Amino acid sequence: MIFVVGMARKIYQYWITPAPLKIPTAPTPLTQTGVVMRMAREVVLFESLFKSNKWTWLFGWLFHVGLLLVLIRHARYFWPGNLPEVFLLVQPFKYAAFAMVIGLIGLLGRRITVERIRYISAPSDYLMLILILVIGVSGVVMTFTSNHTDVIMVKGFASGLLTFDWANLPTEVHFLVHIFLAFLLLALFPISKLLHVPGIFFSPTRNQVDDARKKRHISPWALKQEQDHEVKLEQTLGKD
């Protein structure tokens, strides 16, 4: 509930925040289609990061792609009843956990070894990386070692969360660490730098069309102020 309400609140805040100036970064798209293509390249390929630093791009892309595939595979635990056959196709995604962990280790090492990155890094930056890293490592331990857990119990608990039908959890320590830290991450998400996930779609440097020379750009709140001013001016002229 903290995650859902917190994310909805932040997205609404981003949505209503005015962007009174045209500030897209070069090379700027001249059409809305160009904006969509640019945003797609940024979200899928991390285009600007690739141009900035190849090592940071490599570790960041490995982590995000690995995390996405792991989350897709985890969807089976929340699926009510018997699983469709399509979930059999995502079973190989379990190896994406290694890409996720390698990417996290690279990003953490970057913050420690690169002086200019270390200088601007706050304790929360390290703690967030370590938190996700421990979640990933504990997941790898459960998947690829003999320390397996009862996936039937996990599915019963996870699907019960959606219907408020509480079920018992497995009691293995590594699983409890994994799920507790995952819940902690969800609770911290709406107040952390991880908000770049929805935030990128609201970034005026990325989502604006460079058409300032073709038409006037004015925010809704500024337009209302201008219209109110024009009404008052007409009323004043009418009285005179």
Rank of each mutant, 00 (worst) to 15 (best):
Q91M: 11
A75S: 13
V231F: 00
L83R: 00
L194D: 00
Q91R: 15
G199W: 00
L49H: 00
K193H: 04
Q32W: 15
P27I: 07
V44Y: 13
V35T: 09
R76D: 14
P123F: 10
W55T: 10
T56C: 03
T31G: 04
V65S: 06
H64Y: 04
R73Y: 14
R116A: 06
M128E: 15
D211G: 05
H196R: 05
F144K: 07
F202L: 13
L186N: 04
V197N: 02
I120Q: 10
I16S: 04
D240A: 09
N168P: 06
P80I: 03
I112C: 06
I130K: 07
K215P: 01
V101L: 11
F93D: 03
A8H: 10
R111Y: 00
M1L: 08
P27G: 05
D228V: 02
P24D: 13
H148S: 12
D125Q: 06
T145P: 12
Q225C: 06
V197Y: 13
P92C: 01
H196C: 09
S138F: 13
L58C: 10
G6P: 10
V65Y: 08
V173S: 09
M7K: 08
K22Q: 13
T236P: 00
A40R: 00
F93S: 01
L133H: 01
G136S: 06
I105Y: 02
F201Y: 13
E172M: 08
K224M: 07
V70S: 02
R116F: 00
Q91D: 10
T17G: 06
T149H: 08
K94P: 02
R110W: 01
K10D: 12
W221M: 12
T171E: 15
L62K: 03
Q235K: 01
N207R: 03
Y12T: 09
R213W: 08
F63V: 01
K215V: 10
I105E: 01
L49V: 12
I179S: 04
I11R: 11
T163E: 03
T33R: 06
L237R: 15
I191F: 11
R38L: 05
I102A: 15
F175N: 07
Y95P: 00
K214N: 14
T163I: 06
L169Q: 08
R206T: 12
A182L: 09
V86F: 00
S219A: 14
L162S: 04
D228L: 08
K239S: 01
Y12H: 13
P29E: 11
W79Q: 06
